[in-house]
């Protein structure tokens, strides 16, 4: 076990370490750098980390890698399955390859960087997380996204930002279609500053001027009954 007193690198080989033992070791650590080899698509790897450690997962992982990341840094040196960094609270999660569905789902804070592309529902119901995707994203990106920022250097597939609340979306490439209640917004100077910072934090190179900005049209925030009785009463008054 890493005692947290030095910057030693601890290597854990998942060929001879169970998921439970791996995660227990990561949960007990208070600092340090861990290199996990041979994850071989395992699920829930490095889920629930709550300390300022660095975890490198050398190889592709299955569902929910870095799930509910509360502090620290998790790097997936490969591809990630469904729900990478779901509900992350802070810290940094980075995927050097691509991520499949629901990347960063419901994330509340921190930064998720996906150097490749992301599948459907990237940033679904995000609540404050920042996501930067180097490639394209699939359909229903930022579905019901509540807060935070999603930056896409490539294209966005259909129904981007469907039922979006107060999140901001920045897309450099083509947007196949916008979802319900999502509209293109002005790119203000503040938005350019924000985007510049996000790209820097993600260590991505792109011109903020090439991006378009999308957000909520706020037309679905309240039910709008067509109350004839009130209208008639008003008209008669």
């Amino acid at each position: 076990m890493n005692d947290g007193t030095s910057a030693t690198v601890t290597e854990i080989d998942m060929r001879n370490t169970s998921l439970r033992d791996l995660n227990r070791q990561l949960h007990e650590a208070t600092s340090g750098h861990f290199v996990v080899t041979n994850p071989r698509g395992a699920h829930a790897v490095a889920a629930g980390i709550d300390s300022d450690i660095v975890v490198e997962l050398r190889g592709s992982v299955g569902y929910y890698a870095a799930g509910m990341l509360q502090r620290g840094t998790v790097i997936v040196d490969g591809n990630a399955g469904t729900g990478v960094a779901e509900n992350m609270m802070s810290g940094v999660a980075r995927v050097t390859g691509s991520a499949t569905m629901s990347a960063g789902a419901t994330g509340c804070g921190g930064l998720l960087v996906i150097e490749g592309g992301a599948g459907a529902r990237c940033g679904i119901s995000m609540k404050g997380l920042d996501i930067v995707v180097g490639g394209d994203i699939g359909h229903m990106g930022a579905f019901m996204a509540q807060a935070g920022n999603l930056v896409v250097l490539g294209d966005a597939d259909h129904h981007l930002g469907d039922s979006i609340y107060e999140a901001d979306l920045f897309v450099r490439g083509d947007v196949a279609s916008l979802g319900a209640d999502c509209e293109e917004k002005e790119m203000s100077a503040e938005d350019v500053d924000l985007l510049t910072q996000l790209l820097e934090r993600a260590q991505m190179t792109a011109d903020p001027g090439d991006f378009r900005h999308f957000g909520s049209a706020r037309q679905l925030y309240n039910f709008h009954p067509d109350d004839i009785n009130s209208e008639v009463a008003e008209a008669r008054s």
Partner: peptide, 18 residues
């Protein structure tokens, strides 16, 4: 938002337990 069927649910429960 991050699982869509019973096989996914099994993995979700694993994650929560972890």
């Amino acid at each position: 938002p991050d699982w869509t069927g019973p096989d996914d649910l099994e993995i979700k429960i694993l994650e929560l337990r972890e």
